[in-house]
């Protein structure tokens, strides 16, 4: 009887283990299928000329017509420009805010900044697009759909993310390092910039890289700002395309060659994310090893 009870408990434990494993497998299925489909549908289209060529005329292969493949050059260029500009705006602000939150810790304001940044990362990205649109539509309607507004909308999303990731990075530097520098009579700003920041550099770069990738994948904030365009960069006051916008616009189109290009764009985004996550992992590993003196 007693043994029976113990056996039952053991069996139950096995069943639950199996269930948790099943959960883990279940959540991998969509990821696997997304990557599989992107490779299957976007892979064959992908080539150097696709990355640089202009968008093709819409076309579906009926009655043996061969459709032009075209390319996603303008969208790739647009994503590059938007993300680079947004990073240029948000990295200095986010990094400086993180420095304040960590290096001047213990003050109410520092905690408030950490908390606000945390909360801001959870605000829907579409809101970032809405406020930039709503502001410009009144105060500067001529540039509502432009590189400028797209950059600002992405910055609103990236600033809190960079603040958070840089905060975490700065916290990995032991306090003893700061004290060592202060005890040598090195001023706080030099201690922070030339010693703490340098020590945390791999983690900081990783954080920036990840937030840049996040910005590169955002479509919602760009819907009402960068807006999308069939042409490449036409000046800062004009609309511009981006990979996520292209995916959204082409996905809902009925044209086969556009849909294939959308898959190619999705594949590029996925590949970029893969590369970024591998790179960041390597950087962090190297940093940890160096801190251990290996």
């Amino acid at each position: 009887m007693n043994l029976d009870y113990r056996a039952r408990r053991k069996l139950w434990s096995w069943v639950m283990s199996g269930l948790t494993a099943a959960c883990a497998i279940a959540i991998l299925i969509p990821l696997g299928d997304i990557i599989y489909q992107a490779v299957l549908l976007g892979g064959p289209v992908l080539s150097v000329s696709v990355l640089t060529s202009n968008l093709p005329q819409p076309c579906s292969p009926v009655n043996g017509i061969v459709c032009p493949v075209g390319g996603i050059g303008p969208a790739l260029e647009g994503t590059g420009i938007l993300v680079a500009l947004a990073a240029a705006v948000s990295v200095p602000i986010g990094l400086a805010a993180a420095i304040f939150a960590v290096e001047y810790r213990g003050r109410f304001l520092g905690t408030a900044i950490s908390f606000t940044a945390d909360v801001l990362t959870g605000i829907p990205s579409v809101i970032a697009g809405v406020i930039i649109y709503a502001y410009f539509v009144i105060y500067d309607p001529l540039v509502v759909f432009s590189v400028i507004t797209g950059t600002l909308a992405l910055s609103v999303i990236m600033i809190p993310i960079i603040t958070r990731t840089c905060e975490e990075a700065l916290r990995t530097v032991p306090h003893s390092v700061r004290e060592a520098a202060l005890a040598l009579g090195i001023p706080k700003w030099r201690t922070t910039l030339q010693i703490v920041l340098v020590s945390a550099l791999p983690a900081i770069l990783t954080g920036i890289l990840l937030s840049v990738m996040r910005g590169a994948g955002e479509a919602a904030p760009l819907l009402f700002t960068a807006f999308g365009s069939r042409l490449g960069f036409q000046g800062f006051n004009n609309p511009i395309d981006a990979l996520p916008l292209l995916i959204y616009n082409f996905a809902e189109s009925p044209y086969q060659n556009w849909i294939h290009l959308a898959w190619a764009a999705a594949l590029i985004l996925i590949l970029l994310i893969l590369v970024a996550s591998v790179l960041s992992r390597l950087a962090i590993q190297r940093m940890v090893r160096r801190m251990r003196g290996e």
């Binding site: 602000i93 304040f100 001047y104 900044i113 606000t116 809101i127 406020i131 609103v156 809190p160």
Partner: peptide, 26 residues
């Protein structure tokens, strides 16, 4: 130190300001 403190505090305040800016525009 003073300039540095003001700069980073300014950036920090900007993050807080963002929340209010978003709310006030809406």
């Amino acid at each position: 130190d003073r300039i540095f403190g003001v700069l980073v505090a300014g950036a920090g305040l900007f993050v807080i300001f963002l929340v209010f800016a978003i709310a006030s525009i809406l």
